[in-house]
Design a protein around this nucleic acid. Structure first.
Lengths: 189, 189
DNA sequence: GTTGAAATTAGTACGAA
DNA sequence: TTCGTACTAATTTCAAC
């Protein structure tokens, strides 16, 4: 089985409402129930869908404040850092980043003081952390990317369909010609 | 009804598995099925739970790349900016930030070139945007904050219980005494 | 890939502790 | 409030087309 348009619409429906029944999905997708079950199972087994979760109003849930904490590490102490990250209950999201800092944490707490405590009394004491920079989030919105929305379709195209697509000029990887192979510099992807 | 420990555990269970049936929740929480329905409904109606969604393996779903785009706006053109944000299908998360930049976008696309196209050919052309800075995400992890985990309990305490809690010294807002009121400088919260 | 049954589970209502 | 039960509606499973 392969990711097709119906899979994509199914994922979009499940992103909008993660508790939709398979029967309701089948109905809205215009397919039979058993087909919907097959596709649903496939989405889970193939690893496209990793799980389901409740989304919260963090303020209503008692988390009044969110902040981004940019961290720079001492000489690639990733092992210790990521191990200690597991002990931070305020952590919602962590990204390893290119550029000025090494990583970014999205943390939540009841109030500004609790964030300050986290950064100043906890994070800043870790020997693996060289420096931190805290930026408070004043407003936020989640706009879950939709697999169905335009651009995602590109990922589904077969290699040949990419040629000459980019308005900026295609990134091309010139293959080193194998012995006896004629290499015309075709894009690998 | 008021948020209590069982609500918190229910939310945590639903964050871990958003498709858990109410019967399974009741079972794991040690309460009756009808009580579980009541509490579940209350969590939705009170706005603590805003919805349910499928979580994805973005790479498996064809989004090979994620990036943080920091934006600075021309003279508070928030209206136009947020209006145009709605037209960006690559957008997953947006935060209005304090500090150097005005906001941060988390965007996803099939490859690095697509991110570049988004920033250089789309965002950078918006008149409301003064400048952008793109940082690629090299690895990421979601560690959904748990309402049950230690610190969140603070949000549930009644005001009096906060006194003298902070190891950094409590932030105190001295109330301006109302006429005829004895003000002893008690923390407002 | 579909349809139609049986078995199971979910959702609702209401009285009692 | 919480629980137990009875009842109805819906979903899931499984078999046959």
């Amino acid at each position: 089985m392969q990711l097709d348009d119906i899979h994509i619409r199914m994922v979009d429906l499940l992103r909008r409402n993660g508790r939709l029944s398979i029967a309701a999905l089948a109905d809205q997708l215009g397919i039979s129930r058993s087909n919907a079950y097959q596709r649903y199972d496939w989405l889970i087994e193939s690893g496209v869908i990793t799980g389901f979760t409740a989304t919260l109003d963090f303020r209503a849930a008692g988390f009044g404040v969110a902040a981004l904490v940019f961290v720079s590490l001492e000489q690639q102490q990733w092992g210790e850092f990521r191990e200690r990250l597991k002990t931070v209950p305020e952590l919602e999201y962590f990204a390893v980043t290119a550029g000025e800092h090494d990583g970014m944490l999205l943390v939540r707490a009841a109030d500004v003081a609790a964030i300050h405590e986290l950064v100043a009394l906890n994070l800043a004491q870790w020997s693996c952390i060289k420096s931190t920079e805290t930026v408070f989030v004043m407003d936020e919105q989640w706009d879950r990317v939709s697999l169905g929305a335009g651009f995602a379709g590109r990922a589904l195209r077969s290699p040949g369909e990419w040629a000459g697509e980019s308005p900026l000029g295609s990134t091309r990887h010139l293959r080193i010609a194998e012995p006896g192979e004629e290499d015309e510099g075709a894009p690998l992807r």
